[in-house]
Design a protein around this nucleic acid. Structure first.
Length: 376
DNA sequence: AATTCGTGGGC
DNA sequence: TGCCCAAGAAT
């Protein structure tokens, strides 16, 4: 593809900026390391890219460390129990990513000889890998000059070129503009440079244009209002849904849990029994929908904001014996001991509901003070 | 093409 | 406080 002199000039300045100002991240091979011949591990590139989909660097760090310690290779992840993967992913959100992560690991381990495909097309055929992630892995792990376009790059590109057309319709144009800038030398570092630039300089609010390596050729800065870009389509309002959740506690302090269906909202994750979440405002959030009869104590309401609706969940608590609960027809599920609740595949909304019913549920259990042991 | 799909932090 | 945002993918 033809590269305009202006675009090539911007590319050189951005990669040079990256050499000086790149972020050091747990999954990244920084330029000094790369200069010593260290190559990225495609498994870690893939894992980090999936975790980073719509998720902040800060949130991903601890999960990445945990996953790579627990499963150092893609084959190890492929051989893991899906439930263990969901437990490890719990709290990170967008749980289809975890389900697809496991499927993708299995495909790579069992259908690709344990090695990731090294082309965009091959990568994109795998579960959970779309346009962005395929291009990112191809560029970063395999040195392919793929056009990497994520939210950061969209912001940088739309400002450099003052793209007036709104997202997401302007995506093909943006992709073409990135492709025009993508070098054949160090395409992976160029991609990461664009993302670092968007994350640290070309920020959504109050961009630090004075520190930008390409401020002289930025159309948005020249037009004096860089914050106007990227232009986005209007967002829809967020409806409210109501529901009730039931925290049943047995004589040992164990909590009754069950499994959600494998697809859809919070698919494959663990939950406490709860009603459907509906838009109805007539108050069908009472104990008539409880999983079994009993004295249900109203613990109040928790509010949880999902991407496309806000949930107001009325939480009820009941102390029952297992035999009583079983006799009253408690549905499929299991009693989870209090001390292992924190390790379950509970999404944040469920932890929030359980905390509402049992405020110290996820606190480290107070332990008896043991006498100091003398050694020798 | 438009919806669905989490969560936490910043301002 | 409410809104925006974050290395998007699947359907």
């Amino acid at each position: 593809m033809t590269k305009s002199p202006a675009a090539a000039d911007q590319t050189g300045k951005i990669v040079a900026w990256y050499d000086r100002h790149h972020r050091d991240l747990p999954w990244r091979i920084s330029p000094p390391m790369a200069a010593r011949g260290i190559r990225p591990d495609p498994y870690k590139v893939w894992l980090s890219e999936v975790m980073l989909q719509q998720t902040t660097v800060q949130a991903v760090k601890s999960y990445f460390t945990l996953f790579t310690a627990k499963w150092p290779t893609v084959t190890g992840l492929a051989e893991a129990e899906t439930e263990e993967v969901m437990k490890a992913w719990a709290g990170l959100g967008y749980y289809a990513r975890a389900r697809n992560l496991k499927k993708c690991a299995e495909a790579v381990a069992y259908s690709h000889g344990g090695r990731f495909p090294d082309t965009e097309e091959g990568l994109k055929a795998l579960p959970g890998i779309g346009d962005y992630t395929a291009a990112a892995i191809a560029a970063i792990a395999f040195d392919r000059p793929a056009a990497v376009l994520d939210g950061n790059v969209e912001r940088v590109i739309s400002r450099l070129n003052a793209v007036d057309a709104p997202l997401p319709g302007s995506k093909p144009l943006m992709r073409a503009l990135v492709a025009r800038m993508t070098p054949t030398a160090r395409p992976g570092d160029f991609a990461q440079a664009m993302m670092d630039l968007g994350a640290t300089i070309c920020t959504p609010k109050r961009p630090a244009c004075a520190l930008c390596p390409v401020n002289e050729s930025c159309a948005a800065l020249a037009s004096d209002d860089p914050e106007r870009f990227p232009v986005k389509a209007g967002k829809k309002e967020r409806p409210v849904r109501l529901g009730a959740a039931f925290v049943a506690i047995d004589e040992t302090g164990a909590v009754f849990l069950r499994k959600r269906p494998g697809h859809g909202l919070l698919g494959g994750m663990t939950e406490v029994p709860n009603t459907d979440w509906t838009a109805r405002q007539d108050g069908d959030t009472g104990t008539d929908t409880a999983p079994f009869d009993g004295k249900w104590h109203d613990c109040g309401t928790v509010v949880h904001v999902f991407t496309h609706f806000e949930l107001r969940l009325t939480v009820f608590r009941s102390r029952v014996s297992r035999t009583t609960a079983a006799g009253q027809g408690v549905g499929p599920g299991w009693w989870e001991p209090e001390e292992s609740l924190a390790g379950e595949a509970l999404p944040s909304v469920m932890k929030k509901a359980i905390k509402q019913a049992i405020p110290d549920a996820f606190q480290p259990r107070p332990r008896a003070i043991e006498p100091m042991q003398s050694r020798g």
